[in-house]
Amino acid sequence: MSLRLACIADDYTGASDLANTLSRNGLRTVQTIGIPADGLALPEIDAIVVAFKIRSVPAREAVAAALAAAEYCTARGAGHVMYKICSTFDSTDAGNIGPVTEALAARAGGLCVPVCPAFPETGRTVYQGHLFVGAVPLAESPLKDHPLNPMRDSNLLRVLARQSSRPVGLVPFEVVERGAAAISAALDAALGEGRGACIV
C-alpha cells in the first residue's frame, strides 16, 4: 500500500468533505467510520480519512481516539498524519482541538503544529489569525450560534490558547505569501519560543 496521507477527522461530514476534496485532486482515498477492524483489507490507496464524532466528547476520549487512529495509520505506512477539524473551529474552551493537537504533536516528536481550519470553497478563510465566514468574522456570522459549541470569538489564537497547555503563535499572511520555506522557518522559530501551535 502506498499510503501517503492519514487524516483523522473530528466529525463525519467534515471527513466526507475532505475525502471528496482529496479524491477530486487525484488521491486514491478511502473514508472509514472509526478505526477499521484489523482484518479489513484496504485497497491500494494514497490517503485514508478516519472519521470520528469526537468534537464534543470529553477531551480525554477525543485524544485517545485520535492517538489510536494515528497508530493504526502509521503502522500501515502513512508518512504524514493530519488532524482535520471543523472549518468553524467549534469547540469548547476546554477542548478538544487543543488537547488532540498537542497529543498528536507529542507523538510526532514535539513539533510546532500549523493550524488552519480554512475551507475556501465554503467561504471559510483565515486571515491574520481570525476566522472569517464569507466577508465577516465568524463571531459576527450566523454560524456563531452553533447549538453545542457557540463561537463568540473569531480570534483563533485566543480560542486555541484557552484549550492548550503551551503558547500559541501566528504565522501571518506576509509570511504565508513567501511560501512553504518561509512558513517552515516561522514554525521552527515558534517552536524555539516554546509554542506548540501556530495559526496560519
Rank of each mutant, 00 (worst) to 15 (best):
S164E: 03
P120V: 14
A62C: 10
E102I: 04
P137V: 06
D46N: 12
L104E: 12
F173G: 11
G129P: 00
R162Q: 11
V113K: 07
T92A: 11
I183D: 01
E71A: 13
T122D: 12
V136K: 08
P43Q: 01
D17N: 01
A186F: 02
V113H: 05
L156E: 09
P147C: 05
P120W: 05
L187G: 00
R4D: 03
F132G: 01
T74M: 04
G34E: 03
D10I: 00
H146Q: 01
P120I: 10
F89V: 09
G169S: 02
L104K: 11
K53M: 08
R124P: 11
L67H: 07
C116H: 14
V168E: 07
A6E: 03
A64D: 15
A106M: 12
G194C: 06
A135G: 14
S56E: 02
P172V: 00
G14I: 01
G39W: 11
E102H: 14
Y83G: 11
V175A: 04
C116L: 11
R166L: 14
P114F: 00
M151T: 02
A70I: 15
F132H: 03
K144H: 04
Y83V: 08
S16R: 00
I183E: 12
E121D: 12
L67D: 03
R152H: 11
L18C: 13
A139V: 02
V136E: 02
A65R: 08
I45A: 10
Y72Q: 06
R76G: 15
K84Q: 06
T29E: 00
A185G: 14
V113E: 03
R166K: 12
L157N: 09
L42R: 05
R76A: 10
E121C: 15
A180G: 08
L148T: 06
G169D: 05
T32Y: 09
F119H: 10
Y12L: 12
G179T: 03
I48E: 07
Y127H: 12
L104Q: 01
V57N: 09
D17Q: 00
S87K: 04
D188M: 06
Q31D: 01
S154W: 07
A51S: 05
I97K: 08
R107S: 15
S165F: 11
L104R: 14
R28F: 07
L170F: 03
A68Y: 08
P43C: 01
V100L: 05
L138C: 05
A105E: 15
E174S: 07
P167V: 10
L187E: 02
A70R: 10
V176D: 06
V57L: 05
L156N: 03
V126N: 09
K53H: 08
L187S: 03
V115N: 02
D188Y: 13
R162S: 13
S91T: 13
L18N: 00
G98C: 10
K144M: 10
S87P: 07
P117A: 06
V30K: 04
G98I: 10
C112V: 05
Y83F: 15
A62K: 02
S164T: 02
I54T: 15
R152C: 10
L5K: 04
L143F: 02
T101L: 13
T74D: 15
L160W: 06
G196F: 02
T101M: 13
P142R: 05
I97R: 09
A106Y: 13
S91V: 04
C86I: 14
F119S: 06
K144Y: 12
P99I: 13
I85P: 00
A65T: 01
S165C: 09
N96A: 08
A70Q: 14
